[in-house]
Design a protein around this nucleic acid. Structure first.
Lengths: 208, 208
DNA sequence: TTGATTAAATTAAATGTTTGTTTAACTTTG
DNA sequence: CAAAGTTAAACAAACATTTAATTTAATCAA
């Protein structure tokens, strides 16, 4: 799991190219060129193009699982605070790593890719963690009881993914073409997470 | 624009294969085989693989534009009724045509595909139609004034797309594996549109 | 209704390019 | 000096597209 500099530049280049052109449209030659290494190094280090994409997913998925669990099990903060943190952190993470998340979206659509099962298992685990958290909040009377948690998670993920993956459409439609890429990213993070937090609170929090 | 039976079976086969494997992973040989026509017929009728995908998009986009405009400009129904119809019809349309909509999602992610500009123009048009409708409802005091219409549309599209594109993950996570594909589809349509209608009404309708 | 003529439809085969991967030779490193 | 790293070249397979030959369908004068 420890990668040297050459392996890391291959992983980075592959993530970038797989994200913008797709797995099949990206040749190992393209990756080698982008990473500035010889073509044979990819087979040498990763075995094959398929194994390469698997390595990319594993690296990211493990990192997210840790963040999620730590974030929700932190008992120093209230349920609402932790829920807000969940939305904010998720949105931030997706917007800050467009390349990887585009790969993720693509892989979920594709049915014939090997990493698909890996993704499903980890999505399920993540969902169970969130569900337990909400259920706990419901038992403590903080969250409303008649919430479809699954659909709420789908709205969180679906909205964020859609904003991220069509961010340049969004930019043009909102007349934000004067913003730089990082300014746009900042705008989308705050805008999307505020929108979602409002939306969820409207159905999740008992009226005072 | 009038297609014969052979052209239609090519279009149908291509839509199916592009959707499940992606544009680049689908060879014209695969399409020819699925459509049960000779390989050369695809170049003969559509010129190239690129032109073929453009033809598919044009066919669908024109149909949706008509539906949307008719639906919202129907003055026989109230604003709320028309808004509900918008959500319901959109969700229904996406869920009932998974192949085409997966192609759409894919194309929006991909930056180097020719149809991308076509999609952007039509998304913008559709958004303007919806925005005018909501604004009209706001002027008439039916809808709340402080709604981020753009983000709401992104939640509609994002949630629906995400449910549709990961519908088999959804099925497994919800323990609905006993349902047939068409039963699942029906379940997802009602479930998703109800969820979204509730969500939007919570932020869109003035409290009575 | 015939037979000739022409354009459209259809085909198998060939084209030249690009693909992922391997090889075998070479260089660097410990 | 052996193991790991690196390379250009070679490999067969698959790719989109074109070609040239053949069949089908339509038109129309006799």
């Amino acid at each position: 799991m420890e990668y040297n500099q050459k392996q890391l530049s291959i992983l980075e280049a592959a993530e970038k190219l797989f994200a913008s052109h797709g797995f099949h449209a990206t040749s190992v030659r393209d990756i080698a060129h982008e990473a500035d290494v010889n073509i044979a190094m990819i087979s040498y280090y990763f075995g094959s193009k398929e194994k390469l994409i698997e390595a990319i997913f594993l690296k990211r998925i493990i990192a997210w699982k840790m963040t999620l669990t730590e974030m929700l099990s932190n008992n120093g903060r209230s349920y609402v605070e932790r829920f807000d943190a969940l939305v904010e952190t998720y949105v931030n993470r997706v917007m800050s790593n467009p390349c990887f998340n585009l790969m993720m979206i693509r892989a979920q659509i594709q049915e014939d890719i090997a990493v698909n099962e890996l993704i499903h298992e980890n999505k399920k685990e993540a969902y169970e963690v969130i569900k337990s958290f909400i259920n706990e909040g419901q038992e403590n009377g903080v969250f409303s009881g008649d919430v479809d948690i699954m659909m709420m998670v789908y709205t969180l993920v679906g909205t964020t993914n859609h904003v991220m993956s069509t961010r340049h459409h969004f930019q043009r439609m909102s007349n934000l073409e004067h913003l730089t890429d990082s300014q746009l990213q900042e705008y989308l993070i705050s805008h999307t997470s505020n929108h979602l937090k409002n939306l969820f609170k409207a159905i999740l929090i008992h009226e005072a």
